[in-house]
Amino acid sequence: MNSVVFLVVIPLIAAFLSLFLETKNKIIMYLVTFFNLLFTIFIFKSGCIPFNVAIGGWKAPYGINFVVTDITIYFLLLVNTAAVISITLVKDIKEYQFYSFYFVLLAATNGMVLTGDMFNFYLFTELSTFAIAGLVAYKRDRLSTGAALKFLILSSTASLFSLASIGLIYKTLGTLNFADIAVKLPSLNQASFNLILILFLSSMLVELKIFPFNLWVVKSYEGSITSVNMFTHGMLGTAGIYGAVRILLIVFPNMYKTNISTILMILSFMTVIIGEVGALKEKI
């Protein structure tokens, strides 16, 4: 199943092509999104799960690989189904910037779910940040420009923290592969473990819209058009949840009783309460 790379590559090619195809962009958008969904269903039905694909033939701990496991394929189905549902809300024909950013977002979210390498995960997260900021700013008015700029500043600051944690992982464990990190993790002392986990998780919380980091959400939902809200919630949120699930459960299992699940539970509880109170307080 080397062709699982098509899920990332074909939207990227379409992102470049959308600069030149002016009115045909909408057809290309439907074609690429349905191709992604059908290809995911084909992988799901083909029965060769789990497998991994080494990019460029470099074997797993040294090169970058794509991993498809039982949980990955369900999240892949969720992301692509969310893409199909949300493009039905794009009614009129937009300019080429909209389609280009949408294709980059599709490639980035598929890559975030598929990848098995820490640094590659960081790259796809950054790519999805650009795409979401561009899509939010598409409306070109006062509100959307401010929202996009604030999201871009907050999210790039957070992703620099995750870059620092990736550097710490490479320094302490000597590897960046998810499975290899999980194998070598018992040789890590508790201080490094806590530092890496806090740095990485605080950058993931921005994508997940958890309470202390979710102040960008209100303005970006208010300022952007409806289909962009669906992209932000359905595609980026789902891929972010899978990233957090994989980091917490597979790569960093709860080995030192670091109460990280309690902290996450309290934060999500506060997100629900404060979000509801804020929604009730709105006048309009």
Partner: peptide, 16 residues
């Protein structure tokens, strides 16, 4: 990031 944010900053200056 810097190029994209500077482009957004120009539009921010125009709208605000």
């Amino acid at each position: 990031t810097t190029a994209f944010a500077l482009a957004l900053a120009i539009r921010y200056k125009n709208t605000h």
